[in-house]
Amino acid sequence: MTKPEPKIAPSVQKSKRVLILALLVGVALGIYFSVASFADPDSFELFDNSDINPVVAAIGIAVWLLIVPPLTWIWWRTVDEHEKDAYREGAMVSAHFYLFLVPTWWLASRAGWVPAQDPMIVLLIVSIIWSCVWLYRKYL
């Protein structure tokens, strides 16, 4: 009996598994922050800039710096060249968006037209643009 052919390539299977793991880490981090915020009403929400408990901050930083980078690197090593190109294009577009957004917001804020710049909002916008271009180039 011949071995059934896999439905997707082994490297694609691996990259999907790593991506799902990274998403689970992100969801776990989000839930952790939400629960920590709920437990301490004087603490913070996900994109709030108020003071936070140093232990909560240390755990968040540790996850972000020790778990996410290796996962990103492993994922990058497993994806095929088409997805790498799509990801690179997303990075290029979002980097240029960042280049134009930050000074514009900064100047507009100094002129009193808009509220002060929030790095987490900038990060969110840049990440959304990166992801949209990446997925568009991959699937469309």
């Binding site: 997707i8 390539a9 490297s11 095929d80 060249e81 088409h82 997805e83 991959k138």
Partner: peptide, 22 residues
């Protein structure tokens, strides 16, 4: 999908090559 498995790439990669997008 079959060709993608043979080449160890995603089905989207095969489609992009066939349509000249990649």
């Amino acid at each position: 999908a079959t060709l993608a498995v043979h080449l160890d790439v995603s089905r989207q990669a095969v489609n992009a090559i066939e349509t000249g997008k990649h």
